[in-house]
Design a protein around this nucleic acid. Sequence first.
DNA 1: ACATGGGTTCCCATCATGGGAAGGTCAAGG
DNA 2: CCTTGACCTTCCCATGATGGGAACCCATGT
Lengths: 150, 150
Amino acid sequence: MTLATTALVTIAQASATTGVSAKMIRHYESVGLIKPPVRTENRYRHYAESDLHDLGFIRRARDLGFSFEDIRQLLDLWRNKGRSSAEVKAIALRHIKELDEKASALAAMSRTLQTLAASCHGDKRPDCPILEALDRPVLTSPSAPLRGNP
Amino acid sequence: MTLATTALVTIAQASATTGVSAKMIRHYESVGLIKPPVRTENRYRHYAESDLHDLGFIRRARDLGFSFEDIRQLLDLWRNKGRSSAEVKAIALRHIKELDEKASALAAMSRTLQTLAASCHGDKRPDCPILEALDRPVLTSPSAPLRGNP
DNA sequence: ACATGGGTTCCCATCATGGGAAGGTCAAGG
DNA sequence: CCTTGACCTTCCCATGATGGGAACCCATGT
């Protein structure tokens, strides 16, 4: 009830307080992720506290790797007091799965390369198992147990 | 010495045998990653075995997450018989570091979200720690030891 | 002769982000 | 009053790797 005249701030100030670049703030507006803010006569954007909240929300969601589409849905859910937490959780769980899959893929690449790099002497000699692996197929064999002389 | 008339193949055949899409093959050519192949009078591209090798090399390098720039250097090193394996290994080690950093970042996001999701009941009730975390700052506190009633 | 299945070039889209140009606006200070 | 500098505005372009699709040319089989 305390209509506290919600101090309007410029886009640069909004950027500074939320950690979202001015460029991105305008972009979020253009793709409909946030509501167009009020404009002064000069056509300058001015953001109210609720706008700053949304921008902070978006930045934190992005820091967790959510896509624009996910964020759009999360923001809608946040605003919808009649939401069910199950909806939110479903989005989060799906995203966790995607994150884990990507991380696993990167880790697999890293492991393969580590194995190859470990057996590369890394000196002036030209022969190198890394290049050999790229040379011909049969790569991606992860823990190829070094049978030969155990 | 056996100049084996290196059976020239069309772009579709090259794509099929190397696993690189025709689209990408043309793209690699346009950015100078591979040499322009010979053309028949019809302007059709025709690939020799050495070209197929390069495409296979590129695909395997891409499967390991190397960037175009890295691949360019790796291909140059592969062709350069006077290379030192140290150069190859340096590229690989740098890339491993990048892969690990990205994987760690994703894993951190996943962990944070897993923690939040674990404490979200995920039913019809609207209150949800995930949304609460996005609501206000002080997220990214990983193992916030649940002091309160131990 | 015409259909089909390649090939070719060129443009556009993705996803999130930034760079930069060209121009309008405002406050402070000489 | 006018300049300077720091904002603001819009619009276009670029990234990296990949794909979609249009519009058009070519080759082969029935």
